[in-house]
Design a protein around this nucleic acid. Sequence first.
DNA 1: GATGAATGAGTGTTCATTCAT
DNA 2: AATGAATGAACACTCATTCAT
Lengths: 208, 208, 208, 208
Amino acid sequence: MLQDPHSMDHKKEKQAAIFEAACSVIREKGFHQARIVDIARHAGISYGLVYHYFGSKADLFDAISKEWWDGLYAMMDQCESQPASIDDRLAMIVNYFLDLYERRPNLVHVFIAEISRSTANLTPARLEFFTRFFDRTERIMAGAQDLGTLRKDVKPRYLTYIFLGALEGFISTMVMGEQLLKGREQRKRIARGILDVFFYGASASGQD
Amino acid sequence: MLQDPHSMDHKKEKQAAIFEAACSVIREKGFHQARIVDIARHAGISYGLVYHYFGSKADLFDAISKEWWDGLYAMMDQCESQPASIDDRLAMIVNYFLDLYERRPNLVHVFIAEISRSTANLTPARLEFFTRFFDRTERIMAGAQDLGTLRKDVKPRYLTYIFLGALEGFISTMVMGEQLLKGREQRKRIARGILDVFFYGASASGQD
Amino acid sequence: MLQDPHSMDHKKEKQAAIFEAACSVIREKGFHQARIVDIARHAGISYGLVYHYFGSKADLFDAISKEWWDGLYAMMDQCESQPASIDDRLAMIVNYFLDLYERRPNLVHVFIAEISRSTANLTPARLEFFTRFFDRTERIMAGAQDLGTLRKDVKPRYLTYIFLGALEGFISTMVMGEQLLKGREQRKRIARGILDVFFYGASASGQD
Amino acid sequence: MLQDPHSMDHKKEKQAAIFEAACSVIREKGFHQARIVDIARHAGISYGLVYHYFGSKADLFDAISKEWWDGLYAMMDQCESQPASIDDRLAMIVNYFLDLYERRPNLVHVFIAEISRSTANLTPARLEFFTRFFDRTERIMAGAQDLGTLRKDVKPRYLTYIFLGALEGFISTMVMGEQLLKGREQRKRIARGILDVFFYGASASGQD
DNA sequence: GATGAATGAGTGTTCATTCAT
DNA sequence: AATGAATGAACACTCATTCAT
């Protein structure tokens, strides 16, 4: 199957290879410093071929962006589809991020460093992705407030910012410092820490 | 009085004007898209003059970076110098950020979007600024744990990430959405929200 | 046959074309006045292509420099390798210069006007090329002194300076005045003049 | 007298200071690399003042050029005005160059490196200076041929090129290698070498 | 006379993109 | 599909020159 260069698989494989190379190079040098030549070289192909599989540098970036948001929204679909406690729901989000960082650190890195902060090219369309994600998280928070599981004196929007901010802050720091998650154990501890503090606070009284 | 172009004041003013123009343009277009011409035009001068006051585009960026860190470290000095409860200390940090965002949104924006995530050109020297800031915050957290004010079952480093992450997440969202703080009242509510959730948790039990 | 732009030959030809264009433009305007656009235009290509074949303007200049020294040293190798009288050896040097000026006046011009006098950027490495050439010529002179063919009361180093100076002076003047060698006859007369005067002096008694 | 800043002397002194600074900087960096700022700094004044005393960078260069040619022609006047043997006349020229190099190495350096080879901006007017100098030297050579002191089988023009070439070659080498004349003794030996070889040849038979 | 802030033409270089092979 | 030669828009930066003070 893989021998046939005309198969759909072959095309997808090549595309995926370029995709990964792009993530890797963009992670290392940033979007603007990442040259098409670098990406092609990293993928082991000629740079002309990049244009065969992706129309332009911007398209390549859009593909990465899409990959990120598709995955995130798929997780959110699952998160909201079934009845679950607020603890479980937020745990699902936290674990999704940590999981993804273990499996595809380059993708997460690119999101953190390039997508999440690129005010520069932040078209309304791009902003929409963020807004929708925040809205859905807010809905989860609001639902838990309605059920009486979350405190009501802080706006659900604020809870969203705090929760996602704490999570992203954690990821960012790992990304910035290039620290890798060392094993399942550490990941659990981190997830536990974030969720515990978010639910019960950092105050000493919270742990008793 | 200000007519004398040779006076020290005049020089500082011009430099400050270019500085602000740079923040503004970089905020709008991102560092790489920000052309020196744009900055000059925004400051109402010829672009050659930018090079008279700042050696290069990188120098200009370094100046912005320095401005940010100088301010932040000055605040941290104050924060650590006097005896205070953990609540007061963290409130000081939160308020510093929110304050600065009110007074100099462009500077904060540039930090959030360009400095805090520029993994690309993250030299060890630049990383050092972050590390030191995290270290100092961690020390505050650890101190409060020793005093029994903060829970001990979460590493002080993690508490740091969660706290600063939540704070930065909040700021980021404002920055990304170009939302301005609407009045002292809203700022207080936000500060209260972040600190409350961090200390006592988002759980409904925390508010009782 | 030459249609294949990927062949080695094609590449070498293009490079050579740019090389010659560079010599020509540099000859006409001097190194600093020679713009890459000029060179490209002269070679009938876009200026971006110059960077495809040569890394930078400096590289282009280095290539010219290398071409010059390679040729000169190859001649010197031949000059020193076989047993020959001092007359023949120096004749070989003189003829090499005059020959080259006929075949590649631009190259000689660039050497005379740009390389041989660029004290400005005279790195130790560049100086080395001159020193080695002088050293080898000096060795030839010293050898002839040992054999009793050249007078011993003038240091071989001085003889070198005088001989090469006279030769270069001649070439320079042609270069400066843009005079072309008019035929084999004139070239012979010039070579004869330089060698005769060097060996037997300009004094009237020398010709008897 | 020197106290009066309005005196002619003061102006001339300032001009001379700038002139010397220009020679020095141009010698060190070449004409195109020599910035007005460098020259001003070297002269201990502000760069604006350079424009007060010299109209432009080109004017400054012209002044240097004029200084060179004025001196040279003054010497030639003397050389030709009185009856003298060809030996004495050529000795006068040789000594003039060596003398000047001792007294004003920067000026000589600038001539060798910048004026004598600047084909780039070689206007007919500039070329005229060279031509006239060569013509006058040629006339001296021709005169000696008529008197039977110099061999007639080499064109006087060629003798000129050979003689001045040898002389300039010597100077150039000193200039390039930054070798300074070490004392009166060495200068005499060099002058003797150049003249001896020019008159009697380098051949061993010439010295017997 | 003296200063240096201000200007902007000029140019080397990069790199996304196209396209002939 | 695959290659890489070819193109040229875009931009940082330099520096001679002017001129208000």
